[in-house]
Design a protein around this nucleic acid. Structure first.
Lengths: 231, 231
DNA sequence: GAAACCAAATCGTCATACTTTTGCGGGACA
DNA sequence: TGTCCCGCAAAAGTATGACGATTTGGTTTC
C-alpha cells in the first residue's frame, strides 16, 4: 500500500507538511535544498516530487522551483492525500467533506448491493452485523471499529461498482479517524447497531429500498453527531 | 494539467496501453527495455514508472520488473486514469460506473448548492440554463456540450464541498465522452433542457428538495439512455 | 528429498556532467 | 523617463556510469 524506499520517506515528510498547511500555498522548495535537508540524491528527490506532482500538491517549474499548489487543485480523492489531511490541521474540514460524500454514496451503494451482492457477501454482512452487536455490548472499541470498517467496505464492494468499491479504504480512514480522535460515543449507539443489522437483512432479502434507507439513516446519524462534536 | 516533458510522453503511451487492457494484469516490463523502446534515459523511465505506481497501475519490484497490477487496485478516481479508460476498450464499463457515481453525487450536490451557492453562482446557473435552451434549438452540439459541462461543474462547485467540486472535471469527461462517441441523441432532449432550467430555478430559490429531484431526474435520464445505447 | 547456499537479474541509489527553459536585470533606444 | 529587447544565470530536466541491495531460482550438499 505505502510507497517504499527513500522517496517514500520524503513523501512521508513533505506530504503531511503540505496537506496540513504547514507549507502553505505558494511556498517554493528547491530540489537542491531538499537533497541536503534529507541527505539523499537528486534521483530520490525528483521521484518524490514527481509523485507529489501527480497528486497536484506541487508543481515544478524551471528557473522557479517546486511550488506548493492551491488546495483547490489537489487530488482530494487520492487515499494518501486524504490520510494526510485527516492526520493534520484540517481534519475537521476533511471529515465534513467526507461525511457529505458518504451520505451521497453509501445509501446508493447499499441499494446496489441489495441487487448485486454475492451469496458470500450477504453471509459476511449478516455475520458482521452479529459481531457488531456483540462487540458493542462488550465495549471493545478496537474490534468494533475493525468490524464496522469491514461492514461498510463489504457493502461498497458488493455494489459491484468499482468506483464505490474504491471508497472502501476512504470510509475506513474516516471511521478510524473519528474513533482515534474520540469523535464518537465511547459506547456505540444501540440504535446504530440495529440499523446495521437492518442493512444486512435488507441486502440479504434483496430489498434495495430498505437497504438504502437504513444506510442513509446510519450515515446521517454519523454526520449529525460529527457536527455536534465539531460545533 | 498534463504531465510535461519526456516522462509525459512515456505516460501517454503506457497509461492508455494499461488502462485499455492492451497490457493485461501481470504483464512485466523491464526498465531497460523501456529505455530502448522509447530512446530515453533511466531517469525518465523511472519517473514515469513512479507516477504510474502512484496511480497503482503498476508495481516495481527488484529482480522481477515492473508488473501491471490488477484493475481492482487502480486509483479509479485519478483524472488521468479515468480519461485513459474512457478513451480505450473499457469505455462502456467506465461510463456505467461513472453514471452510478453521478446518480449518487449530483443530486446531493444540487441540494447543497441550493443552500450554499453564492449569488454569482446562482446567476451563472440561470444564464447557462438559458444558453442551453438556445444552443439546443440551434442544434449546435459543440457549444451545447461546453455549456452543459459548465452547468454541472458550477452546481458541483456551488455545493461548497471540495470533494464534490473535484468531480467537476470527471463529469466533464463523461459528457465529452458520450458526445464524442455518439452515445446521446443528436438533438438534445427538450425535456432534459427543461430540467436544467428547473435545477437553476430551484437553486436560485434555495429550494434544496426541488433542485435535488430535478437533478436526479436529469442523471437518471442520462443513465437509462446510456444503458439503452450500450445494450 | 529437504535444507542451505550461491549466483545472476533487476531495480534502487548516488554522483556528476551537460542541456534547456525562463525570470530578471541592465542597457539601448525612443 | 519609460519601454523594449537581449543576454545572463538559476533552476529543473536529461543522460550516463558505477555501485548497492534484494529477490528469485537453481545447485549443491547432506
Amino acid at each position: 500500500m505505502e510507497i517504499q524506499g527513500l522517496p517514500g520517506r520524503l513523501l512521508a515528510e513533505l506530504g503531511p507538511a503540505i496537506a496540513s498547511g504547514e507549507l502553505p500555498e505558494g511556498t517554493v522548495l528547491r530540489a537542491e535544498e531538499l537533497e541536503e535537508r534529507f541527505g539523499v540524491s537528486r534521483t530520490v528527490v525528483r521521484e518524490a516530487v514527481r509523485i507529489l506532482e501527480g497528486m497536484r500538491l506541487v508543481a515544478s517549474r524551471r528557473r522557479v522551483g517546486i511550488t506548493v499548489q492551491p488546495r483547490s487543485g489537489w487530488d482530494v480523492f487520492d487515499p494518501l492525500v486524504i490520510r494526510w489531511r485527516l492526520a493534520g490541521a484540517d481534519r475537521s474540514a476533511q471529515l465534513r467533506s467526507l461525511g457529505s460524500l458518504r451520505l451521497a454514496v453509501e445509501p446508493a451503494a447499499a441499494a446496489l448491493a441489495a441487487r448485486h451482492a454475492t451469496d458470500d457477501e450477504r453471509r459476511r454482512l449478516s455475520a458482521l452485523a452479529v459481531e457488531l452487536t456483540m462487540t458493542a455490548r462488550a465495549a471493545d472499541l478496537a474490534t468494533f471499529l475493525r468490524h464496522d470498517i469491514e461492514f461498510h467496505s463489504t457493502v461498497l464492494q458488493a455494489s459491484r461498482n468499482e468506483m464505490f468499491a474504491h471508497l472502501g479504504d476512504t470510509v475506513g480512514a474516516v471511521l478510524t479517524g473519528r474513533t482515534e480522535y474520540h469523535l464518537m460515543p465511547h459506547q456505540p449507539e444501540p440504535y446504530a447497531i440495529r440499523l446495521h443489522r437492518e442493512v444486512a437483512e435488507a441486502v440479504c432479502a434483496g430489498d434495495a429500498e430498505r437497504a438504502e434507507q437504513a444506510m442513509r439513516t446510519i450515515v446521517e446519524g454519523a454526520l449529525t453527531e460529527l457536527n455536534q462534536q465539531l460545533g
